[in-house]
Design a protein around this nucleic acid. Structure first.
Length: 515
RNA sequence: GAGCCCGUAGCUCAGCCGGCUAGAGCACUUGACUUUUAAUCAAGGGGUCCUGGGUUCGAGUCCCAGCGGGCUCACCA
């Protein structure tokens, strides 16, 4: 792998800086006293008022320059945005020696280099707030040329860096040149911090539970398997943390939540990445009815904190997170969208209904799975505004408590937004005998060929036998919620480093080349 | 896993029915320019056309295989 012309030039520039006695990667800290954004927002040059930002020190990447002989304008991009800087030869080089301007600034600095500037804020003739530079320092040389993205006055973007493969593989470049990408991740971060604030404010405890689990419980999915040498046992990356969080409720905490990565060894697409972030919370002495109210408050709070509004635009639709949300039983939802009343149907009748509706099924599917198929096929996509689907058939939900008044159902809800499930909650099953029974039913499903049926976890059952208070639990897919709140329709756009096939030998060859 | 589309300069892209030395804009280099802002003006350099085969007098272009990516579908609590 050859270095490109531009890469060679930058390496030469690096060498020349060293020859001039300028260290391109200085060790000492550079004191930053101001940021682009605050200067744009707060600079005050109204007549009669004292000027502010008259002694500032900024650091960031050089993102463009317009050299006009003995004076230049350039763009400095720091963590808050861009600001124009003005550099005049005779000001940064007051003596005879004009090298700092003529050679260092004009020739040896490249776009992408980190620099530090000291000077004062002013407004140019054209009205742009600008830093008049008195001192210039090289903070870190960039050897790889950045894509140059230009924007005109109307905000039109030219030569955007858009190739998804490169954007995901080199997210650092994407974040550097695409401010809208940066915005998405700032919002994602706000989403998580808002959620923490909401829970912490109610006195619930943030906890951490094992990622490496000897038994992968709490959900139905294929796990990643690994091996612990010292213990000489297989371990699984968690597909869920539900059973551990419930153990903590058994242990006496009233409310516990965990925000963390789950791992599922399944397909990848626009809404699935092998590792993803979930939030699960369990609160004692509550039921799923209470939880629906809590989720409405949470979703409204989070939407407001992240976007400033409860109404969020997503793929051209306006979604309103202000509660209360419509509540619809699973059977009623199916009746509403298919015209068929499946309540009271046995497995054979359900198979008939699937056939009638053109829903594909196979012989390994039990009653719960059949209903789920109909729902997924015929109902989900219609649930655009936040909607609770409640009261699921017991067969689909081995960890939820039996419905207080409706036989054959459990106390469960899922929250659908824009046709996608974003939250799932139960009145948690805390009857240890019933729980054992349900897990045994899962084993039978597994024997029928459902390789995703849940595994038996004797220690979890033992914990329930010690007694778990009535509890409601909730899980939220953070990535999908982030997609909704940032108007993105691919999970890769809300993950810094989405899973990709490894890049080929290119990088290796290059390493060898450079030594 | 299946179908469709894509892979050409650092970036964004042209490149026709296979035909001279593979092009453009930005970026880069050299020069001019002390309030520019997609700075401007002049000149110039830069390519493993994803990889490997094949067809052909001749392949960026056609065929086959592979690698990587995107979209759609399937799978997926």
């Amino acid at each position: 792998m050859q270095l490109s012309e531009q890469e060679i030039l930058r390496r030469e520039n690096l060498q020349k800086l060293r020859e001039m006695g300028i260290e391109p990667y200085p060790a000492e800290a550079f004191e930053v006293t101001a940021y682009a954004k605050e200067i744009h927002e707060e600079f005050n040059d109204d007549a009669g008022e004292p000027l502010n930002f008259q002694h500032v020190s900024l650091a960031g990447r050089l993102m463009g320059s317009r050299v006009m002989g003995k004076a230049s304008f350039a763009e400095l991009q720091d963590s808050t945005g861009r600001i124009q800087i003005y550099i005049a030869r005779d000001e940064i080089c007051p003596g005879e020696d004009k090298e700092l301007y003529n050679t260092v600034f004009k020739k040896l600095l490249d776009i992408g280099d980190f620099i530090g500037v000291k000077g004062f804020a002013f407004r140019t003739r054209m009205g742009e707030i600008t830093i008049h530079v008195k001192e210039l320092a090289v903070l870190s040389k960039a050897l790889h040329p950045l894509p140059i993205v230009k924007r005109d006055e109307e905000g039109n973007v030219y030569d955007a860096f858009t190739d998804p493969e490169q954007r995901y593989r080199q997210r650092y470049v994407d974040l550097t040149v695409n401010p809208h990408v940066r915005e998405i991740f700032l919002k994602r971060s706000k989403l998580i911090s808002a959620m923490r604030r909401f829970f912490d404010g109610r006195g619930w405890l943030e906890v951490e539970t094992p990622v490496l689990q000897p038994i992968h419980g709490g959900a139905a999915a294929r796990p990643f398997k690994t091996f612990h040498n010292t213990l000489d046992i297989p371990l699984y990356l968690r597909i869920a943390n539900e059973l551990y969080l419930k153990r903590l409720i058994v242990g006496g905490f009233e409310g516990v939540y965990e925000i963390g990565k789950m791992f599922r060894n399944e397909g990848m697409d626009r809404t699935h990445n092998p590792e993803f972030t979930s939030m699960e919370i369990y609160v004692a002495y509550k039921d799923y009815q209470w939880m629906m109210g809590m989720v409405e408050q949470l979703a409204e709070y989070v939407a407001l904190e992240v976007t400033g509004h409860t109404k969020v635009e997503y793929e051209g639709q306006v979604i309103d997170f202000a509660g209360p949300y419509r509540r619809l039983t699973m059977y009623d939802a199916i009746k509403e969208y298919t015209g068929i009343d499946i309540s009271g149907m046995d497995e054979a009748a359900l198979r008939g209904a699937c056939k009638q509706l053109g829903v594909e099924v196979d012989s390994s599917m039990g009653k719960g799975k059949l209903i789920d198929e109909i729902f997924g096929e015929k109902v989900e996509e219609n649930l655009v505004q936040p909607t609770y689907i409640i009261d699921y058939p017991v067969e689909m939900t081995p960890l939820a408590k039996k419905h207080r008044s409706k036989p054959g159902l459990v106390e469960r809800f899922e929250l659908f937004v824009n046709g996608k499930e974003i939250a799932n909650a139960y009145s948690e099953l805390n009857d240890p005998i019933d729980q054992r029974q349900r897990l045994e039913d899962q084993l039978r499903l597994a024997e029928r060929g459902d390789f995703e049926a849940m595994a038996m976890d004797e220690d979890f059952l033992r914990a329930l036998e010690y007694g778990m208070p009535p509890t409601s639990g909730l899980g939220i897919g953070i990535d999908r919620l982030a997609m909704l709140l940032t108007n993105q329709h691919s999970i890769q756009e809300v993950l810094f480093f989405p899973q990709m096939r490894p890049e080929k030998a290119k990088q290796q060859e290059k390493q060898e080349e450079i030594g």
